[in-house]
Design a protein around this nucleic acid. Structure first.
Lengths: 150, 150
DNA sequence: CTTCATGCAAAAGATTTGCAAGTTC
DNA sequence: GAACTTGCAAATCTTTTGCATGAAG
């Protein structure tokens, strides 16, 4: 998977007489290992965790190339990139987050996807991605909150 | 309307022994005069246009108060405030955003709310709020993209 | 007159860019 | 070896904060 992606990227780079460097390979790997949305900071953290010392400036310079190569897709709102996500390869899921302890539960519910496409279509939009997080209180925190409720 | 909002804000402020100042009144007015979504920069521009010389720092400090007072509602994406909108005068809605030109279409689809509660309940969560933004390409941008597609 | 608000300037965080040195082809 | 990349540091931009001064209650 990862290798395949880097090969795709290499082909893209060579087509533009750009170089397929080791740093770029590391970045592609880190990106492909990501699931769901991620931002610059999370990506850099991942790289650091893997011992890759790519400077932020480099990552900032490489991301647009990955976008042009069709490997990642950015969500751009008002001219700014809010987050990226890999353009293929993983199942999509949304998040249910506990606003008190921060616990995150991933879920996938096809009905949402269907309705989302329906809404987009109704307005003539071509849907490219979505941001869907449910915020609530998890069972543990609810128990903690009401220790002795009847 | 405007006056009414400032009174609401005044009540909120006094309840917390904070001051109802003229600068704050100007900010509430500017906010209420806004229709739809706006960001910090647009708001400050509006203030400047009305001859109000509130410093950015002050506006940045006042907005959280307006949020707490229930006068404006922020849309938060990835932990950052993407935009604000006045909290009343319109029903709850989600957003369909054009990733290319930034156009925002509001929609309300009860089925989403029902399914969201269902998902939360399935995991034992008590749902408190949600972020739901659909990102896509609007009809205009699609046309612009493919000028002469069959 | 006490407490809070404001403006300014400095600080902090995020992203971009110029430049010299290191790599890729 | 030529052209492209990288890291660093400096430059921008956006948002936050400390502090002395000015206003509200």
């Amino acid at each position: 998977m990862t290798t395949q992606s880097f090969e795709k990227f290499t082909a893209f780079l060579h087509g533009k007489s750009l170089r397929a460097t080791t740093v770029r390979e590391s970045i592609v790997k880190a990106v492909m290992a990501r699931k769901g949305h991620f931002n610059m900071d999370e990506l850099v953290r991942d790289l650091r965790a893997q011992g890759v010392e790519a400077s932020r400036a480099t990552v900032y310079r490489v991301m647009p190339l990955l976008v042009k190569a069709g490997i990642v897709q950015p969500t751009v709102v008002s001219g700014k990139i809010h987050h990226y996500e890999t353009a293929f390869g993983h199942k999509h899921h949304d998040h249910l987050i506990c606003g008190e302890c921060g616990k995150v539960v991933e879920f996938h519910f096809e009905a949402f996807e269907i309705l989302q496409r329906e809404v987009a279509a109704k307005h003539g939009f071509e849907l490219t991605s979505h941001y869907h997080e449910l915020i609530g209180v998890c069972p543990d925190c609810r128990a903690r909150r009401r220790p002795r409720e009847s």
